[in-house]
């Protein structure tokens, strides 16, 4: 009895002393690949650049942040957030029925459908986006389809419009919406739907009164997963939007690769990260208040 308990205590001690060494690889990776770069970013954002030598002098200037208040940047930030919200909303509208359908399929068919949702991820994001240029251009298949359905005639000029940007955003980010929705919907006990119907609820209201409220954690996860990368998106607007509408991500990208103004780019990035963190916190609060559902 004493033997085994002291052995247990020794094991516990060993477990405690092993805890840090075991966590060390992850912590080191986290520190070097996340904490240090972010700290550098913040450091740079308070620096100043010499416009001819491009040397960064570090100090505590807020000029980079005050430049951000210029209307051109503020409007780009607002636009990026709006596009992010809009993409997330459309993804939700398209993704919810899809996820619901898949969650109510059985066995092999369900696996197959999930695979179909995931497969596009195996193709490079940029290649997928360029593919849509071919699909959406005048004389392309989408135009032919719409004409075949008598939705339009002649050259439809779909490409390089806000609409084509939306198409690009939605098709690229839809899987990120469908997967968490699927997980949430699969956990909704079908007997709850039977119960609601049994209590006199027609199918559409079963959806709004039971299925939708119960899938809120999935909806929040999906919206966050879509909206955050969508807010930072700059490839899709550049390729499918004809480069006419810069997003916040484009400006950040430009500061680092074109104008070479690292401090200003860093300030833009810091502000952007702050906005996204705020969104994440809000999302957590939204999920948290539903905790007893999960």
């Amino acid at each position: 009895m004493t033997d085994s308990s002291s052995a247990g205590a020794a094991r516990q001690r060993a477990g405690r002393t092993l805890r840090w060494p075991l966590a060390a690889p992850t912590l080191i990776v986290w520190a070097t690949l996340f904490a240090v770069p972010v700290a550098l970013l913040i450091l740079f954002s308070f620096g100043r650049i010499d416009p001819s030598t491009y040397k960064v002098s570090f100090g505590w200037t807020f000029s980079n942040y005050s430049k951000l208040l210029e209307p051109v940047y503020a409007s780009m930030l607002v636009r990026s957030l709006l596009i992010a919200v809009a993409s997330a909303f459309i993804c939700l509208l398209v993704g919810f029925p899809t996820a619901y359908f898949i969650s109510r399929c059985q066995g092999r068919l369900q696996q197959l459908l999930l695979l179909a949702v995931i497969i596009p991820f195996w193709v490079s994001f940029i290649v997928r986006t360029y593919a849509w240029v071919s699909l959406l251009r005048n004389g392309g298949p989408v135009e032919a389809l719409l004409r075949g359905l008598h939705i339009g005639s002649g050259a439809l000029d779909i490409l390089y419009t806000p609409g084509s940007v939306m198409v690009g955003m939605v098709v690229n980010y839809l899987p990120l919406m469908i997967l968490p929705l699927f997980v949430a919907l699969e956990r909704v006990d079908p007997s709850l739907e039977f119960a609601a119907a049994d209590l006199g609820t027609p199918p559409r209201r079963v959806l709004t009164r039971v299925v939708l409220p119960l899938s809120v954690p999935g909806v929040v996860a999906g919206v966050v997963l879509v909206a955050i990368p969508a807010a930072g998106e700059y490839v899709v607007p550049a390729i499918l939007g004809g480069g006419k509408t810069s997003m916040f991500g484009n400006v950040i990208f430009d500061q680092f690769t074109k104008t070479g103004n690292y401090p200003f780019g860093a300030a833009l990035a810091v502000v952007f990260i702050a906005f996204l963190m705020l969104a994440l916190v809000l999302a957590r609060v939204a999920i948290g208040s539903r905790e007893d559902v999960v």
């Binding site: 251009r137 005048n138 004389g139 050259a155 000029d157 490409l159 390089y160 939007g241 004809g242 480069g243 006419k244």
Partner: peptide, 21 residues
């Protein structure tokens, strides 16, 4: 003139002239 501009591009500019878009 930007409102009348279809796109700012670096690739396939002349191709759009060829296909008439």
């Amino acid at each position: 003139i930007k409102p009348a501009v279809q796109a700012f591009k670096v690739l396939d500019i002349a191709k759009s002239l060829v296909d008439g878009s």
